[in-house]
């Protein structure tokens, strides 16, 4: 019994190291200059030679300051729309009977099953026709549409699991359909909403494919997101060898995900295990 416990901890500790060390390595390497990185790749940076200017350069030279604004703006609006519209659609599909309800639900689910890359050509021309290439709104719409199937899939299950009598109590208490949704059902689906928000936040924050395809040239420069900036940085650093700045950029991209995840992870676990336990 004791041996297996020790073994279990050993395995988990090794796994933890495996996962966390690269991140830590990137974080402290971002404070070294190229020479130091190549001389002693795994050494900690020297106290007196901390290269904090890596960050300043990533922010200014590599335009991360502009990209982060685009990323935050696009991600915040997309995730809010996904959660809001997803919750409303899922509630309607889970709660009300309509002859076409199942069909609509499967239509949404098919969005999960079809690889998004397949749709890029028609999508490109559609956005072009609408004048939404190289615009934040265009990306927001694409991300929102792309995220809805997952949100509806998760949240419909959530709404189905809420006891019907809660809705009935709300209606008898004086709620209309809308206020029963906003004041009773939606707050109760919070773990599901958080689950959806986190997954979509991560997905949109690091999304590269659409951002790359739907923004181009000088016009696209103003709406580029962090993943594009990062890719740019990694390509140029192959020639110019500026790993310190690349690592700084990586940290700038990664930290928000870590912060959001740590802040909401309790809710996330609740959401993922919802329905598994009584209570």
């Amino acid at each position: 019994m004791k041996i297996t416990r020790v073994l279990m901890f050993a395995v988990l500790a090794a796994y933890l190291l495996w996962v966390v060390y690269p991140m830590v390595w990137v974080a402290y390497s971002s404070l070294k200059d190229d020479e130091a990185i190549f001389r002693e790749a795994f050494a900690l940076p020297a106290w007196d030679g901390l290269r904090t200017e890596n960050y300043a350069r990533a922010w200014k030279e590599a335009r991360f300051g502009e990209y982060i604004f685009n990323s935050v703006w696009i991600t915040a609006v997309s995730v809010s729309l996904i959660v809001l519209l997803g919750a409303m659609a899922a509630y309607a599909l889970a709660r009300f009977y309509h002859p076409l309800g199942r069909g609509v639900f499967w239509l949404f689910l098919s969005g999960l099953m079809i690889p998004v890359q397949l749709s890029i050509v028609p999508l490109f021309f559609e956005l072009k026709a609408l004048g939404l290439l190289n615009s934040r709104l265009g990306l927001i719409l694409v991300y929102t549409a792309n995220g809805l199937p997952f949100a509806i899939f998760i949240l419909a299950g959530f709404f189905k699991s809420l006891p019907r009598s809660l809705y009935e109590a709300a209606v008898v208490d004086g709620c209309s359909e809308a206020s029963a949704f906003w004041r009773v059902m939606l707050p109760l689906a919070r773990p599901g909403l958080v689950t959806v928000a986190i997954f979509q936040f991560i997905g949109v924050w690091k999304e590269y494919f659409f951002a790359f395809m739907l923004t181009s040239g000088e016009a696209g420069e103003a709406v580029r997101t962090l993943p594009l900036g990062l890719a740019n940085l990694s390509i140029t650093s192959q020639y110019r060898s500026d790993y310190g700045m690349l690592f700084a950029g990586l940290v700038i991209v990664t930290v928000p995900i870590l912060v959001v995840f740590v802040a909401l992870q309790k809710q996330l676990v609740k959401g993922v295990t919802a329905g598994a336990l009584k209570g």
């Binding site: 006891p163 009598s165 009935e168 208490d173 209309s176």
Partner: peptide
Amino acid sequence: VPPKDRDIAMVFQNYALYPH
């Protein structure tokens, strides 16, 4: 008439208290 306008109150078998 919708439930909210019937001036009734109901106690449910599983209580149906709002958990939040």
